[in-house]
Design a protein around this nucleic acid. Structure first.
Lengths: 254, 254
DNA sequence: GTCCCAAAGTTGTATATACAGGCTAGTACA
DNA sequence: TGTACTAGCCTGTATATACAACTTTGGGAC
């Protein structure tokens, strides 16, 4: 069965590899067609096809007369990274900071117990954090975690590693569900996120599963005037859409 | 500015045209590369590129040794349903109705012209509708359509066939982008959707492409207290996910 | 110094050619 | 009759070549 991959595909794999490994960063220059001809001993048309398809798939951007550059859109394509607001902010070249408001063991009640599929009164961890982008509050994270999945939860320093990053390391993501709502924030949310008068809140409610059971239930509030969710869809048939159709958070331009 | 389109693009447009017009039906055979060489006086590599890209974009399916065939677009139905609020409501077992508030030819300005990639002042269709679920207003649809894609737009009865359904029938969906925001509605939106005092609005802004060009730009406003977006992820590795990772509109339970 | 233009490098497209491999129908042969 | 094989068409890939258009850079004319 081992028919060798076509050479244009080998070129694509090579470049994708350098991008995922970090050897090539967003906006870095990718070898030109003629350089690939020399380096890889292929014809220019083969190099052209490889780079053109990488362009079509969003990995790189090509500018006639200038060159080929790594696009900054694809780099954070993993679903797990989408869950991590610190990476998201870092990818925009901004600085992330967070402040832990609460980190405690509680008894699950009502909506939380139902969402996590545990009995009323079961012990769960409760985390409350504010995330800042360039100093401005951008997300209020109100999260409950099933105790069994993360027994060390109270000892973690969530100002250096976000709860999302910590949880995906201790409980591999199997499935995720999210709900997006627009609401008027209550007083606490307004205060923590410095809402303007009458500003709406974009709320993402996310549940994740690992090993077939719910792990965490998070309510993520964002200021409506400074945050939006963007999604991209390419119908079946378009090559390599695995990451393109993931919904990811992106800050409003301006 | 009128530089002629590249020939491979002309070939693609020709075949896409025959498909949209119905001249070519699903599973029909598309002219082979060598036939296109004869008919269109191009080289085989040019014909190859046109057909290969149509294959990548899902318009046709190519089988080595047999030929090229029009694919049936059933696979896109998931997405089409997502775009069509009438189907969405019907799926919940509720009744859908809509009222056309505006159906006119306008000159694209500002944001609309930029979103549709047309010159300022280009003529576009403007549609404004309210959709009702069981008699309650549930979506205000504010849509602009590039005139070339749907010349019959003014004659359509959008109270019996939604704009979304009509558009996907005349311009096969190639790509979609959507942005979700939470805002405070202006007076017009409040009035048409019967907003309560201080209620937030969940806005979905969606652009779709066909044949490589933007087709339509829609702003869909929903009452924040009665609407939410739900999404579901399964990480790569689990069965093929075309429909699972599409964000779909769903009404709040309860 | 400033402006203009040419050169070099880049992508974008188009063509001619070649060979490999899949599929099918029809023919030759047992 | 039935089987095997081959000819012919199809797609898939790879190469060499050519020209066009765009961008940057540097050098020469003024």
């Amino acid at each position: 069965m081992n028919t060798a991959k076509p050479r244009y595909q080998q070129l694509k794999d090579l470049i994708i590899g350098r991008i995922s490994s970090g050897e090539l960063s967003p906006n870095d220059r990718v070898p030109s067609e003629n350089e690939l001809v020399e380096l890889m001993s292929v014809s220019r048309m083969t190099a052209n096809r490889a780079l053109r398809e990488l362009n079509d798939e969003g990995y790189v951007e090509r500018i006639a007369g200038r060159g080929t550059f790594v696009s900054d859109f694809r780099s954070q394509s993993h679903l797990l990274e989408v869950h991590n607001i610190a990476d998201e902010i870092a990818q925009r070249g901004h600085s992330h900071a967070s402040k832990v408001l609460r980190q405690s063991l509680q008894h699950a009640r009502g909506e939380v117990a139902r969402a996590l599929h545990v009995e009323q009164g079961t012990e769960v961890f409760h985390l409350l954090l504010v995330h800042f982008e360039n100093g401005a509050p951008i997300q209020l994270e109100d999260r409950h975690v099933v105790a069994g999945f993360a027994p060390e939860c109270l000892e973690q320093d969530f100002e250096s590693v976000t709860p999302s990053a910590y949880l995906t390391s201790v409980a591999p993501l199997q499935e995720a569900e999210q709900v997006v709502r627009a609401t008027l924030p209550n007083a606490a949310v307004r205060k923590h996120l410095n809402f303007e008068e009458g500003e709406a809140s974009l709320v993402v409610i996310r549940r994740t599963w690992s090993a077939g059971r719910p792990v965490t239930f998070a309510r993520l509030h964002h200021p409506g005037s400074r945050y939006e969710l963007t999604g991209h869809y390419t119908p079946p048939g378009t090559p390599r859409s695995t990451s393109a159709d993931v919904v990811q958070l992106e800050k409003l331009r301006q």
